[in-house]
Amino acid sequence: MTTGISLIRENTASMQPPRALWVSFPLGRPLGKPGDPAFQHRVISAALDLLNRNDGPVLEDYQEDAPQIEIEHAPACPVTFAKKTSDIEGWTEALRAEVEALKPWHDLGRRRKKGRTLVGLSSLSVMDNALKFADLLENNELPVTELKWFKAALEDTKVFYLEAITAQPGAYEHTYIEQIFWSETLMGKAMLALHERFSDDDGLSAFARIMAPRSAVSGAKKRT
């Protein structure tokens, strides 16, 4: 028998699994709050209670919301990303400088989390991947024959940035982190530029979907 978490109530209601606990938490956070075992246990306990129901399917609403995090109470971003795309003389030096600036913060965050990091899907370092992105942009090329590398490199780069931005202890509002990455960092701008090129290519447009979230793409369009 199964029980579990539902993040999109409407999807679960249509598919009718035997038992599901719908939670109001953000996508990506099915147990609600990182680093809070008591909160997570309350969610799990409510989902396990569904096993005792006599009839199903059961779709129950969990009544507790994840705590709101006020942006002004979250630790400040440790790096200032002031440069505009129009100020960039070359992607290579710009991305190199940005990754170098973030590296000590990423190292600090990794030590705080006792060595835990999500970086490492790609066989290349974060810096080498950044320089390859810069090459693609400067040479107006797409990695047609290297899509497997490109997917892993995108993932590694994004988690490197978010782990560096959240290096200091504290609770972070995830939409704020996304906003910093996609609207303030040069890497975010580089990925959006590549996303646009992928979107314009008939053979690769489907791949564009895994490069940047819909909210970042629409936000970039509004800014231009």
Partner: peptide, 24 residues
């Protein structure tokens, strides 16, 4: 803690998982 994530979707938060594997 050694688990990593190679999910294709970019439309959800990964910072919580980066902080605590038990969240997911």
């Amino acid at each position: 803690d050694d688990l990593v994530m190679s999910h294709s979707s970019v439309n959800f938060d990964k910072s919580g998982f980066a902080e605590d594997v038990n969240l997911v």
